[in-house]
Amino acid sequence: MITDKRILVVEDEEHIRKFVRINLEREGFIVEEATTGEEGLDIVGSTDIDVVVLDIMLPGIDGFQVCKILREKYPAIGIIMLTAKSQDIDKIMGLEYGSDDYMVKPFNPIELVLRVKSLLRRMDYKKDENQDAIVEGPFRIDKYSRKFYKGDREIELTPTEYSIIQLFIENPGRAFTRDEILNIVWGYDFMGDSKIVDVNVRRLRSKIEEDASNPQYIETVWGVGYRWRKKM
Rank of each mutant, 00 (worst) to 15 (best):
R6I: 14
R6F: 02
R6E: 07
V10S: 01
E11W: 09
I22L: 04
I22C: 06
I22N: 03
I22W: 07
N23A: 02
L24C: 11
L24M: 10
R26H: 11
E27K: 09
G28W: 06
I30V: 13
E32L: 08
E32G: 05
E32F: 06
A34V: 00
E38M: 08
G40I: 01
D42N: 04
D42F: 12
D42A: 09
V44F: 02
G45C: 03
T47N: 04
D48A: 15
D50L: 00
V52D: 01
V53A: 01
V53T: 10
L54H: 08
D55M: 10
M57T: 08
L58W: 15
P59C: 08
D62H: 15
V66C: 01
K68R: 12
L70D: 04
R71H: 05
K73R: 14
K73L: 13
I80G: 02
A84F: 11
K85H: 15
S86R: 14
S86P: 05
Q87N: 12
I89L: 11
I89C: 12
D90K: 01
I92R: 07
I92T: 09
I92W: 05
I92D: 01
M93G: 10
E96I: 15
Y97F: 14
Y97C: 09
S99M: 11
S99Y: 04
S99C: 13
D101F: 02
Y102N: 11
Y102W: 07
V104L: 13
P106A: 05
F107H: 08
F107W: 09
I110H: 08
I110P: 06
I110S: 11
E111L: 12
V116T: 14
S118H: 10
R121C: 04
R122G: 14
M123Q: 06
D124M: 04
Y125A: 15
K126Y: 12
E129G: 11
E129P: 13
